[in-house]
Write a protein that binds this DNA or RNA. Structure first.
Length: 494
RNA sequence: GAGCCGUUAGCUCAAUUGGCAGAGCAGCUGACUCUUAAUCAGUAGGUUGUAGGUUCGAUUCCUACACGGCUCACCA
């Protein structure tokens, strides 16, 4: 380990402590109170002159005068000022603080509470002990740590310096707790299914591949838990859910991370209408619990979770924004002709896609999705885009599927599950043809899943919710990496 | 994957036309018993992302590479 000048100076202080017979990394703290509780009961504790032992990290600057010194410590429940005076702390304590304690060190202090002349709640320190010497210096006092790359690579430092960052992750934990509470309360059973899968499925995505040495078998990191969860519905569970990571071997941007957290749930004897009601109710419950209300602001936009979500047909929404009724142009060629006739392809706004369904999706993404700011369900997706969803009885080219959008982001995806094994087999075969034709995100044939459906799966409604994106909305964060502790970054040289 | 921008002291940032690489904070030394962006005096700190090139001379111009940011594409 090569140390720079500042680190060397700190190391010298550490050695000075050792020479004086003090262990700079003792095994445990003797603290008696958390700072938060002390501040809450400051007046009583001050009046009783109770000796307290507090512990925490020195934050901000030390202010050392000739015979008087101040600093602040923070312990996760709050922060309080340390007050050293040569007369009342004693020469040893004062000199130890002055000569061996730096910003970011974690220390333990014993003393009594007292307000300074200006009224700040402080602890007048009588004993001082190093709990962990910090060898790295702190970032700039006022500008702090701003460099995005450094903040993400050294998230621990980001969390020390930018305390509001911690609140985001507390809200994340609270949101997930709230979601669990909602689902548990409705009788869902929380389950765990494989992350390493011999056949990947449940979504359109490219997977990560890994290898099991003893079995000498390639395995895929899951891109969704869907097919395993539905096997459990076949097995007799009426409601299951799983909260866990999915992995997709694709690009990263403000709303995509390589690995991301999804809640998937399945409810037997339900359809996508029931799931829409579930989503509305569950989000109300989560938003209320996390933010304390049903309205919130996301990146300057007011979003209201009180009313029922808006509902709009996928086909109708495209027609509204583009004037094109995609059902009247049922092939890729005719649809592309219509797009050209409407002059929508100019400026590279709309790209030519490989199939009718993907072209429909392209139109939707470009012209409709960005407009869906308020919570909105978009209904009935083409069957080619939804190989696991049941066909709409009214129109077999479409499925009983909806996606939920908030602030222009897809947050939820749900459908009435396809439980007809014969239709499912045809869908897999169609996906196989798409894969052969170059669609590397197409589903794999899953014979065991078909076998499971052949035992009979009750009519079932299923749902997936992107937890990271939901937390972005709840905490007003512009990018997904601000709600993930350690988003993936390219490895550094050296 | 593409375009644009960036990378200078521990951190936050300057550096004119290509001409001695600077400041603030933090640090170190000293003064100071109510500070809280403490103050005052002094002081140290650099492979200017990496490797080449042009040039008498490169932080500055050129090429390649690495990493990152923004926008777009893909994806949820």
């Amino acid at each position: 380990m090569e140390l720079n000048e500042l680190q060397t100076q700190r190391l010298a202080k550490l050695e000075r402590l050792r020479e004086a017979g003090t262990e700079p990394f003792p095994t445990r703290s003797q603290r008696t109170h958390r700072i938060g509780e002390v501040l809450a009961a400051f007046d009583e504790l001050e009046a009783s002159a109770t000796p307290l032992t507090l512990a925490g990290r020195i934050i901000g600057a030390r202010r050392v005068m000739g015979k008087l010194a101040f600093a602040h410590i923070s312990d996760g429940s709050g922060q309080i000022q340390l007050w050293f005076s040569l007369g009342e702390s004693g020469e040893d304590v004062f000199a130890t603080f002055r000569d061996t304690v730096d910003t970011f060190d974690i220390v333990e202090v014993q003393g009594v509470l007292r307000r300074t002349k200006r009224g700040e709640e402080s602890i007048l320190v009588q004993r001082l002990r190093m709990l962990a010497k910090a060898l790295n210096p702190p970032p700039e006092k006022w500008e702090g740590l701003k460099d995005v790359e450094e903040r993400l690579r050294q998230r621990y430092l980001d969390l020390i310096v930018n305390e509001d960052r911690r609140a985001i992750f507390r809200a994340r934990a609270e949101a997930i707790r709230s979601m669990r509470g909602y689902l548990d309360g409705r009788g869902f059973v929380e389950v765990e299914t494989p992350i390493l899968q011999p056949i990947y499925g449940g979504a359109a995505a490219r997977p990560f591949v890994t290898h099991h040495n003893q079995l000498d078998q390639d395995l895929y990191m899951r891109i969704a838990s869907e097919l395993y969860l539905k096997r459990l519905i076949v097995g007799g569970f009426e409601g299951v859910y799983e909260i866990g990571k999915n992995f997709r071997n694709e690009g990263v941007d403000r709303s995509h991370n390589t690995e991301f957290t999804v809640m998937e749930c399945y409810l037997a004897y339900a359809d996508y209408e029931d799931i829409m009601r579930l989503v509305e109710e569950m989000f109300r419950s989560i938003v209320q619990q996390v933010t304390g209300g049903l309205q919130l602001t996301y990146q300057g936009q007011q979003i209201d979770f009180a009313p029922a979500w808006q509902r709009v047909g996928l086909i109708e929404s495209i027609a509204e924004q583009t004037g094109i009724d995609v059902m009247e142009h049922p092939t890729q060629e005719s649809l592309w002709a219509a797009i050209q006739a409407a002059d929508l392809h100019q400026g590279g706004k709309v790209e030519r896609k490989a199939s009718w369904a993907k072209q429909v999706d392209e139109l939707f993404s470009t012209f409709v999705e960005p407009l869906l700011v308020q919570p909105t369900f978009v209904l009935e997706y083409p069957v080619e885009l939804s190989p696991l969803a049941k066909r709409s009885p009214a129109n077999p080219r479409l499925t009983e599927r909806f996606e939920g959008f908030i602030a222009g982001m897809e947050i939820a995806n749900a459908f009435t599950e396809l439980n007809d094994p014969l239709d499912q087999e045809q869908r897999f075969l169609e996906q196989g043809r798409a894969y052969s034709a170059g669609d590397d995100e197409a589903h794999q044939m899953d014979l065991d899943y078909l076998h499971a459906l052949m035992y009979g799966m009750p009519p079932t409604g299923g749902l997936g919710v992107g937890i990271d994106r939901m937390v972005m909305i709840l905490t007003d964060q512009p990018t997904i990496r601000e709600v993930i502790f350690f988003p993936h970054l390219r490895a550094r040289e050296t």
